[in-house]
Design a protein around this nucleic acid. Structure first.
Length: 213
DNA sequence: GTAGTGATTTTCT
DNA sequence: GAAAATCACTACA
């Protein structure tokens, strides 16, 4: 299980290191999935970060200690889960956007739809919380506890790439989306080897010091 | 595969 | 009262 020190670092480092780690929810019906896509939201100067207006009741977990969950309701119907990074008082987090399902697939189908293929179960930030059974009840929980946590398992290496963040109207200039290249469970437009020019012109290879697994 | 549209509720102004 | 870090559905190529 990742210790608090893992989250107590620059957010982009945490984002890159999360790809290939395993999100585990031990709820009523335990489930787990490999993280394949994340986005960083950093500080009050980031217009897309919920800390942009300064401290409010809603964004309180962002200002709290690292290694806690920040779950909120988006568009009135989807729960989105973030992991809080950086030291107390420094509001930043990494949004989990997609997982490759690993354990508890039948529970995921029960919570979503029985007909879905494996790679569709946790593709998209709203979809993954539904599949994993993560709700507003998990807002603020300590990821160093036993209910909701992230594990470092012995898994195959993944090649990661970066792009601009998707699904937002502001702050689209920052290249803070990190994902496993060519993984079918990644949401949104994905790189295709068949295209001579990548869909995301801003995708680049990750620097050696940001490479994970 | 892409494009358009509506659901729905919390938060903050 | 507007906006929001989305999704599923439809139509169409």
């Amino acid at each position: 299980v990742l210790p608090r020190a893992f989250y107590d670092r620059p957010t982009l480092d945490v984002a890159a290191a999360l790809i290939g780690k395993v999100l585990v929810h031990r709820g009523r019906a335990p489930s787990a999935g490999i993280i394949v896509e994340v986005e960083a939201y950093i500080g009050e100067s980031d217009p897309a970060c919920h800390a942009a207006p300064g401290p409010t009741k809603r964004n309180r977990p962002l200002y709290g200690p690292p290694g806690h969950a920040y779950v909120y309701l988006n568009y009135g119907m989807h729960c989105l889960v973030n992991v809080v990074t950086e030291t107390t008082g420094s509001p930043a987090a990494v949004l989990i956007r997609a997982l490759a399902p690993l354990d508890g697939l039948s529970a995921m189908r029960r919570r979503r739809a029985r007909t879905l293929r494996d790679v569709e179960l946790c593709r998209g930030p709203g979809n993954l919380t539904k599949a994993m059974g993560i709700t507003l009840a998990e807002n603020g929980v300590d990821l160093c506890g036993r209910r909701l946590l992230i594990e470092d398992r012995w898994l195959d290496a993944m090649t990661i790439g970066w792009s601009t963040r998707i699904g937002i109207r502001v702050g689209t200039d920052r290249v803070w989306r990190c994902y496993a290249i060519d993984h079918p469970a990644v949401s949104g437009p994905r790189l295709s080897r068949s295209l001579s020019e990548p869909i995301h012109a801003r995708v680049r290879k990750v620097p050696r010091d940001r490479r994970s697994v």
